[in-house]
Design a protein around this nucleic acid. Structure first.
Lengths: 143, 143
DNA sequence: GTGTTTGCAAAGTGTTTGCAATTTA
DNA sequence: TAAATTGCAAACACTTTGCAAACAC
Protein backbone atom coordinates (compact mmCIF):
# COMPACT_ATOMS: atom_id res chain seq x y z
CA UNK A 1 0.00 0.00 0.00
CA UNK A 2 3.05 2.18 -0.33
CA UNK A 3 1.56 4.41 -2.97
CA UNK A 4 -1.80 4.77 -1.32
CA UNK A 5 -0.63 7.29 1.26
CA UNK A 6 -3.80 9.35 0.76
CA UNK A 7 -6.38 6.64 0.29
CA UNK A 8 -9.63 7.00 2.17
CA UNK A 9 -8.79 4.10 4.40
CA UNK A 10 -5.41 5.52 5.17
CA UNK A 11 -6.83 8.93 5.97
CA UNK A 12 -9.28 7.41 8.36
CA UNK A 13 -6.47 5.50 9.99
CA UNK A 14 -4.38 8.63 10.31
CA UNK A 15 -7.29 10.58 11.69
CA UNK A 16 -8.05 7.86 14.18
CA UNK A 17 -4.48 7.81 15.35
CA UNK A 18 -4.41 11.56 15.64
CA UNK A 19 -7.52 11.61 17.77
CA UNK A 20 -6.16 8.90 20.02
CA UNK A 21 -2.94 10.82 20.48
CA UNK A 22 -5.01 13.75 21.64
CA UNK A 23 -6.83 11.61 24.14
CA UNK A 24 -10.08 11.61 22.19
CA UNK A 25 -11.92 8.44 21.36
CA UNK A 26 -12.26 8.13 17.61
CA UNK A 27 -16.02 8.04 17.44
CA UNK A 28 -17.77 8.09 14.09
CA UNK A 29 -18.67 11.76 14.52
CA UNK A 30 -15.20 12.89 15.52
CA UNK A 31 -13.56 10.98 12.73
CA UNK A 32 -15.94 12.42 10.16
CA UNK A 33 -15.51 15.96 11.45
CA UNK A 34 -11.75 15.60 11.70
CA UNK A 35 -11.76 14.24 8.17
CA UNK A 36 -13.34 17.41 6.89
CA UNK A 37 -11.20 19.69 9.01
CA UNK A 38 -7.75 18.20 8.69
CA UNK A 39 -7.59 16.45 5.33
CA UNK A 40 -6.65 19.33 3.16
CA UNK A 41 -5.33 22.82 3.60
CA UNK A 42 -5.94 25.21 6.47
CA UNK A 43 -9.56 25.99 7.10
CA UNK A 44 -11.76 28.42 9.01
CA UNK A 45 -15.15 27.18 10.11
CA UNK A 46 -18.01 28.07 12.38
CA UNK A 47 -20.09 25.46 14.14
CA UNK A 48 -22.89 26.08 11.73
CA UNK A 49 -20.80 26.03 8.57
CA UNK A 50 -19.22 22.77 9.62
CA UNK A 51 -22.57 21.27 10.53
CA UNK A 52 -23.96 22.28 7.14
CA UNK A 53 -20.96 20.82 5.40
CA UNK A 54 -21.06 17.48 7.11
CA UNK A 55 -24.83 17.26 6.73
CA UNK A 56 -24.54 17.95 3.01
CA UNK A 57 -21.92 15.22 2.85
CA UNK A 58 -24.66 12.88 3.99
CA UNK A 59 -23.30 12.37 7.49
CA UNK A 60 -25.59 12.80 10.45
CA UNK A 61 -24.08 14.69 13.35
CA UNK A 62 -26.07 16.89 15.65
CA UNK A 63 -25.26 20.56 15.94
CA UNK A 64 -24.64 20.11 19.66
CA UNK A 65 -22.01 17.50 18.91
CA UNK A 66 -20.37 19.82 16.40
CA UNK A 67 -20.11 22.48 19.10
CA UNK A 68 -18.78 20.00 21.62
CA UNK A 69 -16.32 18.55 19.16
CA UNK A 70 -14.99 21.94 18.11
CA UNK A 71 -14.31 22.74 21.74
CA UNK A 72 -12.72 19.36 22.40
CA UNK A 73 -10.48 19.77 19.35
CA UNK A 74 -9.59 23.26 20.51
CA UNK A 75 -8.75 22.05 23.98
CA UNK A 76 -6.65 19.27 22.47
CA UNK A 77 -4.69 21.87 20.48
CA UNK A 78 -5.96 20.69 17.11
CA UNK A 79 -7.89 23.91 16.51
CA UNK A 80 -7.65 27.50 17.54
CA UNK A 81 -10.54 29.82 18.21
CA UNK A 82 -10.47 33.15 16.41
CA UNK A 83 -12.42 36.07 17.80
CA UNK A 84 -13.21 38.62 15.14
CA UNK A 85 -16.97 38.87 15.16
CA UNK A 86 -19.26 39.42 18.10
CA UNK A 87 -21.93 37.34 16.41
CA UNK A 88 -20.18 34.01 15.86
CA UNK A 89 -17.14 31.96 16.80
CA UNK A 90 -14.63 30.89 14.20
CA UNK A 91 -12.26 27.96 14.48
CA UNK A 92 -8.99 27.76 12.60
CA UNK A 93 -7.20 24.54 11.70
CA UNK A 94 -3.96 26.49 11.58
CA UNK A 95 -2.81 26.48 15.19
CA UNK A 96 0.58 28.03 14.51
CA UNK A 97 1.65 31.63 14.92
CA UNK A 98 -0.25 33.71 12.41
CA UNK A 99 -2.76 36.50 12.00
CA UNK A 100 -5.84 37.21 9.90
CA UNK A 101 -7.52 39.31 7.33
CA UNK A 102 -11.22 39.45 8.10
CA UNK A 103 -13.90 40.31 5.57
CA UNK A 104 -16.76 41.10 7.88
CA UNK A 105 -19.53 41.27 5.32
CA UNK A 106 -18.96 37.73 4.16
CA UNK A 107 -17.62 36.33 7.38
CA UNK A 108 -14.44 35.28 5.62
CA UNK A 109 -11.06 34.81 7.26
CA UNK A 110 -7.74 34.70 5.42
CA UNK A 111 -4.49 33.72 7.08
CA UNK A 112 -1.50 36.00 7.28
CA UNK A 113 1.71 34.08 7.98
CA UNK A 114 3.22 34.83 11.35
CA UNK A 115 6.61 35.64 9.83
CA UNK A 116 5.11 38.27 7.57
CA UNK A 117 3.71 40.51 10.24
CA UNK A 118 5.45 42.07 13.21
CA UNK A 119 4.06 44.08 16.08
CA UNK A 120 6.47 46.45 17.78
CA UNK A 121 6.10 48.71 20.76
CA UNK A 122 3.69 46.71 22.86
CA UNK A 123 4.04 48.32 26.28
CA UNK A 124 4.64 46.23 29.36
CA UNK A 125 1.30 45.12 30.68
CA UNK A 126 0.19 46.58 34.01
CA UNK A 127 1.85 44.96 37.05
CA UNK A 128 0.68 41.45 37.75
CA UNK A 129 -0.24 40.76 34.15
CA UNK A 130 1.67 38.88 31.50
CA UNK A 131 1.16 38.77 27.77
CA UNK A 132 -0.60 35.65 26.65
CA UNK A 133 -0.91 36.32 22.94
CA UNK A 134 -0.98 39.21 20.51
CA UNK A 135 -3.78 39.01 17.99
CA UNK A 136 -3.83 41.14 14.87
CA UNK A 137 -6.99 41.42 12.81
CA UNK A 138 -6.75 43.28 9.54
CA UNK A 139 -10.31 44.23 8.74
CA UNK A 140 -10.82 44.53 5.00
CA UNK A 141 -13.63 45.61 2.71
CA UNK A 142 -14.51 45.16 -0.91
CA UNK A 143 -12.96 48.13 -2.68
CA UNK B 1 -19.63 81.62 35.75
CA UNK B 2 -16.09 81.66 34.50
CA UNK B 3 -14.80 79.30 37.13
CA UNK B 4 -17.67 76.88 36.88
CA UNK B 5 -16.50 75.23 33.67
CA UNK B 6 -17.29 71.81 35.08
CA UNK B 7 -20.48 72.51 36.98
CA UNK B 8 -23.29 70.04 36.61
CA UNK B 9 -25.37 72.53 34.69
CA UNK B 10 -22.53 73.26 32.34
CA UNK B 11 -21.84 69.62 31.71
CA UNK B 12 -25.43 69.02 30.85
CA UNK B 13 -25.33 71.93 28.48
CA UNK B 14 -22.18 70.62 26.84
CA UNK B 15 -23.62 67.16 26.57
CA UNK B 16 -26.81 68.49 25.07
CA UNK B 17 -24.90 70.47 22.50
CA UNK B 18 -22.75 67.49 21.67
CA UNK B 19 -25.76 65.28 21.09
CA UNK B 20 -27.39 67.91 18.91
CA UNK B 21 -24.26 68.22 16.82
CA UNK B 22 -24.43 64.50 16.24
CA UNK B 23 -28.02 64.75 15.13
CA UNK B 24 -29.39 63.11 18.26
CA UNK B 25 -32.18 64.64 20.28
CA UNK B 26 -30.96 65.25 23.79
CA UNK B 27 -33.52 63.13 25.57
CA UNK B 28 -33.25 62.56 29.28
CA UNK B 29 -31.89 59.07 28.74
CA UNK B 30 -29.29 60.08 26.18
CA UNK B 31 -28.09 62.99 28.27
CA UNK B 32 -27.76 60.82 31.35
CA UNK B 33 -25.92 58.08 29.49
CA UNK B 34 -23.68 60.55 27.71
CA UNK B 35 -22.99 62.17 31.07
CA UNK B 36 -21.64 58.90 32.41
CA UNK B 37 -19.74 58.07 29.27
CA UNK B 38 -18.12 61.34 28.31
CA UNK B 39 -17.64 63.33 31.48
CA UNK B 40 -14.38 61.89 32.63
CA UNK B 41 -11.58 59.88 31.16
CA UNK B 42 -11.80 57.20 28.48
CA UNK B 43 -14.06 54.33 29.33
CA UNK B 44 -14.93 50.81 28.24
CA UNK B 45 -18.45 49.62 28.85
CA UNK B 46 -20.84 46.87 27.92
CA UNK B 47 -24.57 47.44 27.62
CA UNK B 48 -25.08 45.66 30.89
CA UNK B 49 -22.34 47.42 32.82
CA UNK B 50 -23.63 50.78 31.68
CA UNK B 51 -27.17 49.83 32.54
CA UNK B 52 -26.10 48.72 36.01
CA UNK B 53 -24.18 51.92 36.50
CA UNK B 54 -26.96 54.23 35.51
CA UNK B 55 -29.48 52.25 37.51
CA UNK B 56 -27.28 52.44 40.61
CA UNK B 57 -27.05 56.18 40.03
CA UNK B 58 -30.79 56.22 40.54
CA UNK B 59 -31.66 56.92 36.92
CA UNK B 60 -34.24 54.75 35.21
CA UNK B 61 -33.32 53.71 31.69
CA UNK B 62 -34.35 50.42 30.16
CA UNK B 63 -31.73 47.97 28.99
CA UNK B 64 -33.20 48.12 25.49
CA UNK B 65 -32.63 51.86 25.42
CA UNK B 66 -29.06 51.40 26.58
CA UNK B 67 -28.46 49.04 23.69
CA UNK B 68 -30.10 51.39 21.23
CA UNK B 69 -28.25 54.38 22.59
CA UNK B 70 -24.87 52.65 22.44
CA UNK B 71 -25.47 51.88 18.78
CA UNK B 72 -26.68 55.39 18.04
CA UNK B 73 -23.61 56.86 19.72
CA UNK B 74 -21.42 54.46 17.79
CA UNK B 75 -23.04 55.39 14.52
CA UNK B 76 -22.60 59.05 15.40
CA UNK B 77 -18.90 58.47 15.95
CA UNK B 78 -19.01 59.15 19.68
CA UNK B 79 -18.16 55.55 20.53
CA UNK B 80 -16.28 52.71 18.99
CA UNK B 81 -17.14 49.06 19.27
CA UNK B 82 -14.35 46.74 20.36
CA UNK B 83 -14.50 43.07 19.49
CA UNK B 84 -12.43 40.97 21.85
CA UNK B 85 -14.89 38.54 23.35
CA UNK B 86 -17.37 36.32 21.60
CA UNK B 87 -19.76 36.65 24.51
CA UNK B 88 -20.26 40.40 24.80
CA UNK B 89 -19.81 43.69 23.00
CA UNK B 90 -17.61 46.39 24.42
CA UNK B 91 -17.86 50.07 23.60
CA UNK B 92 -14.95 52.45 23.94
CA UNK B 93 -15.26 56.20 24.47
CA UNK B 94 -11.83 56.61 22.92
CA UNK B 95 -12.58 56.75 19.21
CA UNK B 96 -9.04 57.62 18.17
CA UNK B 97 -6.31 55.37 16.85
CA UNK B 98 -5.32 52.98 19.60
CA UNK B 99 -5.19 49.35 20.62
CA UNK B 100 -6.02 47.25 23.67
CA UNK B 101 -4.86 44.98 26.37
CA UNK B 102 -7.63 42.54 27.19
CA UNK B 103 -7.90 40.65 30.44
CA UNK B 104 -10.35 37.98 29.45
CA UNK B 105 -11.07 36.56 32.87
CA UNK B 106 -12.31 39.85 34.21
CA UNK B 107 -13.58 41.30 30.98
CA UNK B 108 -11.27 44.28 31.38
CA UNK B 109 -9.92 46.43 28.57
CA UNK B 110 -6.95 48.77 28.84
CA UNK B 111 -6.01 51.24 26.14
CA UNK B 112 -2.67 51.18 24.39
CA UNK B 113 -1.91 54.50 22.70
CA UNK B 114 -1.83 54.31 18.94
CA UNK B 115 1.61 55.92 18.77
CA UNK B 116 3.09 53.28 21.06
CA UNK B 117 2.38 50.29 18.91
CA UNK B 118 3.28 49.64 15.31
CA UNK B 119 2.34 46.82 13.00
CA UNK B 120 4.71 46.14 10.13
CA UNK B 121 4.56 43.72 7.27
CA UNK B 122 0.84 43.53 6.69
CA UNK B 123 0.62 41.97 3.22
CA UNK B 124 -1.48 43.55 0.53
CA UNK B 125 -4.98 42.21 0.88
CA UNK B 126 -6.25 39.93 -1.85
CA UNK B 127 -7.33 41.72 -5.04
CA UNK B 128 -10.53 43.70 -4.67
CA UNK B 129 -10.09 44.23 -0.95
CA UNK B 130 -8.81 47.25 0.91
CA UNK B 131 -7.69 47.57 4.48
CA UNK B 132 -10.28 49.16 6.69
CA UNK B 133 -8.56 48.98 10.04
CA UNK B 134 -5.89 47.02 11.84
CA UNK B 135 -6.89 45.87 15.29
CA UNK B 136 -4.36 44.62 17.80
CA UNK B 137 -5.50 42.82 20.91
CA UNK B 138 -2.87 41.97 23.48
CA UNK B 139 -4.42 39.21 25.55
CA UNK B 140 -3.03 39.23 29.06
CA UNK B 141 -3.36 37.02 32.12
CA UNK B 142 -2.74 37.37 35.81
CA UNK B 143 0.85 36.25 36.32
C1' DG C 1 -49.45 68.80 16.94
C1' DT C 2 -46.03 65.91 14.69
C1' DG C 3 -42.41 63.07 14.45
C1' DT C 4 -39.06 60.93 17.59
C1' DT C 5 -37.90 58.12 21.39
C1' DT C 6 -38.81 55.05 25.16
C1' DG C 7 -40.02 50.80 27.64
C1' DC C 8 -41.84 46.61 27.89
C1' DA C 9 -42.26 42.09 26.68
C1' DA C 10 -41.69 39.00 23.11
C1' DA C 11 -38.80 37.13 19.67
C1' DG C 12 -34.23 36.03 17.86
C1' DT C 13 -29.47 34.20 17.60
C1' DG C 14 -25.71 31.61 18.69
C1' DT C 15 -24.32 28.51 22.23
C1' DT C 16 -24.49 25.29 26.27
C1' DT C 17 -26.44 21.69 29.11
C1' DG C 18 -29.16 17.68 31.37
C1' DC C 19 -30.06 13.28 30.62
C1' DA C 20 -31.58 8.90 28.50
C1' DA C 21 -30.00 6.09 24.78
C1' DT C 22 -26.05 4.60 22.26
C1' DT C 23 -21.40 3.53 21.32
C1' DT C 24 -16.48 2.48 22.36
C1' DA C 25 -12.95 -0.22 24.41
C1' DT D 1 -19.65 -4.29 31.26
C1' DA D 2 -17.98 0.19 32.45
C1' DA D 3 -17.05 4.55 30.96
C1' DA D 4 -17.38 7.88 27.37
C1' DT D 5 -20.12 10.02 23.84
C1' DT D 6 -24.23 11.37 21.32
C1' DG D 7 -28.64 13.71 20.28
C1' DC D 8 -32.48 15.90 21.53
C1' DA D 9 -34.89 19.46 23.52
C1' DA D 10 -34.84 22.71 26.91
C1' DA D 11 -32.26 26.32 28.90
C1' DC D 12 -29.10 30.19 28.33
C1' DA D 13 -26.97 34.82 27.70
C1' DC D 14 -26.91 38.55 25.03
C1' DT D 15 -29.15 41.34 21.75
C1' DT D 16 -32.88 43.09 18.72
C1' DT D 17 -37.60 44.35 17.61
C1' DG D 18 -42.82 45.62 17.48
C1' DC D 19 -45.72 48.70 19.16
C1' DA D 20 -48.36 51.67 22.32
C1' DA D 21 -47.43 55.38 25.49
C1' DA D 22 -44.48 59.34 26.51
C1' DC D 23 -41.64 62.99 25.05
C1' DA D 24 -39.10 66.78 22.37
C1' DC D 25 -39.54 70.59 19.60
Amino acid sequence: MAKAARSAKNLTAQTTARLRQSGLRPTRQRVELAGLLFDDCDRHVTAESLHDEITKAGVKVSLATVYNTLHQFTQAGLLRQVIVDAARSYFDTNTGDHQHFFLEKEGMLIDIPGEAISVAGVPNPPPGLTVDRVDVVVRVKRA
